[in-house]
């Protein structure tokens, strides 16, 4: 997905994991995904660069669709669609 497409997504749930480092963001994502409906989009905010790589791996394992990352000033917005 392009940055514009990512920005235009309807986000069902946003998880702000900027206050935690590895493996915190992954744990926050796991805790939050239960409250997201199938085919809905979840956004994870993380200041931890590793999360950018970890979340796609987590998606592959859990069967969710990884949509992409937007880099903001000092943090990342990571998007995925729950399957």
């Amino acid at each position: 997905m392009t940055q514009e497409e990512l920005n235009a997504l309807t986000v069902a749930k946003s998880v702000d994991a900027r206050g935690t480092a590895c493996p915190g963001p992954l744990l926050e994502a796991k805790k939050a995904i239960g409250g997201v409906g199938a085919n809905e989009v979840m956004e994870v905010l993380s200041a931890d660069e590793g999360t950018k790589v970890d979340i796609p791996k987590w998606c592959t394992k859990q069967g969710h669709e990884f949509l992409g990352t937007i880099e903001e000033n000092g943090y990342f917005k990571i998007y995925l669609r729950k399957k």
């Binding site: 590895c22 493996p23 992954l26 744990l27 994502a29 796991k30 970890d54 987590w58 394992k61 859990q62």
Partner: peptide, 11 residues
């Protein structure tokens, strides 16, 4: 514990 928690977060 870091590895364990990451693994558990992946079910």
């Amino acid at each position: 514990f870091v590895i364990s928690i990451a693994a558990a977060a992946m079910d």
